[in-house]
Design a protein around this nucleic acid. Structure first.
Lengths: 233, 233
DNA sequence: TCAAAAGTGTTGCTGCTACACCCATGC
DNA sequence: GCATGGGTGTAGCAGCAACACTTTTGA
């Protein structure tokens, strides 16, 4: 039996980072939270929020820590995208980075912390130049989000707890990059029976006012258990 | 401006590995190529083929190298799944592993190399115990394959260059884990106009013989350019 | 001539798309 | 009373699922 395995003590360890693609939604735009780097390398340029993985830290925990460090938020919807491992992706050293995408409510984050990191929201269709391969990460995240949102009820993570169907539709429209028919959209969404219509209207955007809804995760999970899938198709 | 970034020279680097989930198809079964470890840790147990990423090696290149080392094959369909980063996933040291899945033709690999690694094919529904978190990787790969195959023509990577529609359907049935209607399946597949019917029959499995087809990747790409999607729906 | 697997079309129904008007309210 | 945005139903059509018999050939 051949033995091609390199003994562990001959392995060259590599710095591993996590980078967070943080999505937010603002009226009619998808936005990303980017930091203006106050440190080398690439000081003064825009980048995703990131950080190195500690020796005794789970990968997911590192991503959670980094997100919390910037926004103060915990228990946020966040998922790994994939690892990015080009040799020269980071100009300072060989670093492998694992990208995560997070969906947050723009209302809820800690403004001081964001301020302290010199971070700003940028509309997805007017992103500044970003360091390293962060642009690739973002476009990968964008298409992942676009795919996932059609078979998982993720949109609610980007909206306030109470939202109108008008807002929800606008959100789906920017993520899917297409106009949707109002009647058909409402039919599809309401069909799944995972929204609760409140006796309350949002009057900020019209005189008539639009009914507020809230996402009933309990109902969604119950449906899952019964084998009922969510689908926007 | 606060600066929470750890200087690169204070980072603890971590050993990074790649592990390959190698799928093959044999008559009516999906199979995985596993190695019987001839080295520590977990000597004598079954595991995915893997290897450490070198300091100056692209992630994808490491996966390609590892696959070639075991099978002799290059230019194989292979894609990253995601990184697995639990702190104690490897019993010998903290190792982050990036999992890849590969689709190969069982005819084409180098038998001696596989022999030399003490590797064997295992039916997916009768897998032995595997080391570390390799079982998680496999089930993640399985569901990824199941999803992808419905919107990308991946199946052909698992079949010989010439194959029958009977074989193709059997392949889809094991991956999708459901019986398919013969007439509907043929309609859907042929509709996309990416198969070429040959003037040749396979007579191994029946007296009548079944027509052989080959996948026309050129036609598939041409259709992609025209915005026509592949879908088994 | 029979057994075994390959090959082939049609129909009903479901579920999607497309589409236009009324409602409530603030000014 | 009018301008603004919110809310609602239907009909036609496309595409999917379900289904059974004929063909070919080797033994």
């Amino acid at each position: 039996v051949k033995n091609n395995s390199r003994p562990y003590n001959q392995v060259t360890p590599i710095p591993v980072a996590v980078d967070c693609i943080i999505f937010g939604f603002n009226e009619n735009n998808l936005e990303l939270l980017l930091i203006h780097r106050g440190f080398e390398p690439k000081i003064g340029q825009w980048s995703l929020m990131g950080g190195f993985v500690e020796k005794n830290e789970q990968l997911d925990a590192a991503a959670t820590r980094v997100l919390k460090e910037l926004t103060g938020l915990e228990e946020i919807y966040m998922e790994q995208l994939r690892a990015f491992g080009a040799v020269n992706r980071d100009s300072a050293d060989r670093v492998i980075s694992v990208a995560y995408f997070a969906l947050i409510r723009k209302e809820s984050y800690n403004k001081e912390q964001v301020q302290a990191h010199n971070a700003k929201w940028h509309s997805l269709d007017a992103l500044p130049e970003m360091v390293f391969d962060h642009k690739d990460m973002v476009s990968y995240a964008k298409s992942t989000l676009k795919n996932k949102i059609q078979s998982q009820p993720l949109g609610f993570n980007l909206l306030p707890a109470k939202f109108t169907l008008v807002q929800l539709q606008a959100l789906y429209e920017v993520i899917l990059e297409e106009k949707l028919d109002k009647r058909n959209f409402r039919k599809k969404i309401l069909f799944h029976d995972i929204l609760e219509k409140l006796n309350e209207k949002d009057k900020q955007h019209s005189k008539k006012g639009a009914y507020l809804f809230k996402f009933r995760e309990d109902r969604f999970k119950e449906r899952l258990n019964r084998g009922l899938a969510f689908s926007l198709k």
